[in-house]
């Protein structure tokens, strides 16, 4: 068999006839993509806000149990409440950007773009608003534990302490990596796709 045989059989290959184009289905497909992303963001916001509140309450119990000398737990509670606040604010902003089902495609794309830009900025600055408070909270808790531990206790064992710090840093780095990967693989490509679509729609209008 040679190239000419390949060409011949290629040209004889049976192909389905007819358009089979359901435009409303395509429109739905575009909207499904938007809805999927919106649902992912919504679940993340509620989960993170809820987790922040649970940690705050847990910190309150720990503070109450150890007494006033553990006052730095108040700082951790403030940091966790702040984090929850960020996610609650995100939900409120998302509501502001939402458009009705009768909105034009351009309006929908503009709304999606606003959400996407916001998500990109959050992911780019994740160190500042998410990881730094987390690191601070972990550091404060670790200092309190070590400070109140009896000399020679397991809490002050240098190897255990090093292992604990290493574990915390690994969790922080993993969280950063997840954010960076999402930014690179999902958010930026979707942002570029939406910007292209917005430009095309605007050019037409």
């Amino acid at each position: 068999m040679n190239w000419n045989d390949y060409e011949a059989v290629w040209k004889r290959q049976p192909l389905p006839k007819g358009a089979e184009a359901d435009v409303s289905e395509l429109r739905r497909s575009f909207e499904t993509k938007s809805r999927k992303l919106e649902a992912t963001i919504r679940v993340r916001d509620y989960t993170e806000a809820g987790a922040g509140l649970v940690v705050t309450v847990a910190c309150g119990f720990i503070w109450a149990k150890h007494g006033s000398s553990w006052w730095p737990m108040g700082l951790i509670m403030a940091l966790m409440l702040g984090l929850s606040g960020v996610f609650i604010r995100e939900r409120l902003m998302a509501r502001r950007w939402r458009v009705g089902p009768a909105a034009s495609l351009l309006a929908k794309v503009e709304a999606d773009l606003a959400v996407m830009r916001r998500q990109c900025r959050l992911a780019e600055k994740v160190w500042l608003w998410y990881l730094a408070p987390g690191v601070a909270a972990l550091a404060i808790h670790l200092c309190l534990v070590v400070r109140d531990a009896a000399p020679g206790s397991v809490q002050r064992d240098p190897w255990l302490l090093t292992g604990r710090i290493f574990f915390y840093l690994s969790v922080i780095l993993f969280t950063w990596w997840i954010n960076w990967r999402t930014l690179r693989r999902r958010l930026r490509p979707r942002l570029a796709e939406l910007e292209k679509l917005r430009d095309e729609l605007r050019a037409e209008a």
Binding site: Q13, L15, P16, K17, G18, A19, E20, A21, V23
Partner: peptide, 18 residues
């Protein structure tokens, strides 16, 4: 837009299938 899209699919469906 829809009419042109359908006409294109009718004419060039083979490209998509390949």
């Amino acid at each position: 837009h829809t009419v042109q899209f359908k006409a294109w699919l009718e004419e060039h469906r083979g490209i998509l299938v390949k």
